[in-house]
Design a protein around this nucleic acid. Structure first.
Length: 187
DNA sequence: TAGGCGATGGTCT
DNA sequence: GACCATCGCCTAC
């Protein structure tokens, strides 16, 4: 993606729907982004709401990098950092449509079903092999690559999933009609 | 198809 | 000591 820095130097809620259809690869394995959620520092559901901590440090760093954290003590989840350094907003990547390295993803997930390989934030990090070791890596240098979408994508918005605060904010975005979402969007 | 729930451990109060 | 930006398995319908 050209000029990644400018792309991410905007509000997470603006960046998030534009990421739909972009291709995320880690070591050549990945797919098209099918579902995302935006998190903002004024948002009580955001990890950055209560200020910087050792865990969320990379959210406060420069944009166009990844923020990786452990969820429920089991899963890794990956975010893209947005806006200017210190503003601490990010987009959580929730689902991918697998396109590259599908055999490797099936091996890591011990699963054949293509639709379930990356249909959730914890699933896609397992499929791609992303862990805390990759926290704060830039999105435009190996082993990570991000390619802009090549065709238009119709986005749908909805409320976010799995959170207990600010549940009403419609900052979940998905590709309309995609079979690779973590959950369907209500009609 | 939808909902309940256990596993599991880092993070913060 | 409580809280979780989850997953997958198990029921019940």
């Amino acid at each position: 993606m050209t000029d990644l820095r400018a792309f991410f130097d905007r509000e997470a809620a603006v960046v998030a729907p534009q990421l739909l259809g972009a291709t995320l690869l880690y070591n050549g394995v990945g797919g098209r982004i099918a579902e995302v959620e935006a998190y903002h520092p004024t948002d009580p559901a955001s990890h950055s709401f209560s200020g910087p901590t050792p865990r969320n440090k990379s959210m406060f760093g420069p944009p166009a990098r990844v923020y990786v954290y452990r969820s429920y003590g089991i899963h890794w989840c990956v975010n893209f950092v947005c806006e200017k350094e210190g503003s601490a907003s990010a987009v959580l990547i929730r689902a991918l449509e697998p396109t590259h390295g599908i055999a490797a993803m099936r091996r890591r997930r011990h699963l054949q079903d293509l639709h379930a390989l990356c249909s959730g934030p914890g699933k896609l990090t397992e499929a791609l092999g992303i862990t805390i070791a990759h926290n704060a890596l830039p999105l435009d240098r190996p082993p990570i690559a991000l390619h802009a979408r090549t065709e238009n994508v119709e986005a749908v918005a909805g409320i976010r999933i799995g959170i207990t605060k600010a549940v009403e904010l419609p900052w979940r975005y998905g590709v309309r009609g995609s079979k690779f979402l973590s959950k369907p969007f209500p009609k």
